[in-house]
Simulated scan of single mutants.
Amino acid sequence: MTTSVVSSQVGSQDESENDKLETECVFRGFLKSKASQDRQDDIERAIEGELEADEPSLINQQRNKQIGSQLAAIADQLDVQYRHVIDGLIDELKLTSENAYDNFAVLARRLLARGVTWGNIVVLFCFGYRVILRFFSQNIPNLIRSLSDIMVRFVVTEKISQWVKDHGGWIQVLNAGIGLESPWYHYGAVAVGLISIVALVVWWRK
């Protein structure tokens, strides 16, 4: 194997690992912000206990938390309007420790069937948060850690993280006038999310 091939493989592995760490940090910020918004103190403490104990060492860690917080603010409108619909879909998934990733992936792929958008990413994260809420009272060991791993694995494996990079990176969420802080983008993201949820329900109930 030539040196150039080895270097390429190492570079690709490093890039993939960075994608995982960055996605994980953004999703953690999302979960914690949503739990805080919803006054879910027990879940917020559990997030700190399960996730922040092994906080990824990223240079832009604080920025990624801010990104997660901004995504959570947008998800709040979706959550208020469609939480019962989302919870119904989660119940129908019949998630167990054995089928959790595969069943979650089936639903998530359908959500993204028309392509990745910022709005669909918000809906995807919102689903992850609602899964935690639905199962938290059952005292499942490492529930939040497991869900976070599933989300990160899906985002990286399904090339959503690549889409994010191709569209300016997660930082676009914070860029006023371009990202989700601008009013037209905020409501546009919510509208896309609502359409995606409705389409998902129609497909699932067929």
Rank of each mutant, 00 (worst) to 15 (best):
T3N: 11
T3R: 15
V5L: 15
S8Q: 10
S8Y: 11
Q13G: 02
S16A: 13
S16L: 15
E22H: 10
T23R: 09
E24T: 12
E24M: 15
F27L: 05
R28A: 06
G29K: 07
G29W: 10
F30M: 06
A35Y: 02
D38F: 02
R39A: 12
E48C: 08
E48H: 09
E50D: 07
E52I: 02
A53T: 15
D54L: 13
S57P: 06
S57I: 14
L58G: 06
Q70G: 08
A75R: 00
A75E: 01
L78V: 07
Q81H: 11
Q81F: 05
Y82V: 00
R83Y: 02
I90F: 06
E92N: 02
A100M: 12
D102E: 08
V106P: 06
A108K: 05
R109N: 12
R110Q: 14
L111E: 09
L112G: 01
G115P: 01
T117I: 02
N120L: 00
L124P: 02
L124F: 13
R130T: 02
N139H: 14
I140T: 14
P141W: 07
P141K: 06
N142H: 08
S146H: 11
L147H: 08
R153H: 12
F154E: 02
V155W: 03
V155I: 13
E158W: 05
S161R: 05
D166L: 09
D166K: 08
H167A: 04
W170R: 04
I171D: 10
I171V: 12
V173P: 04
L174G: 05
G177Y: 00
G179R: 08
W184E: 07
W184Q: 10
V190S: 05
V192I: 09
I195V: 15
S196F: 01
S196I: 00
V198G: 02
V198F: 06
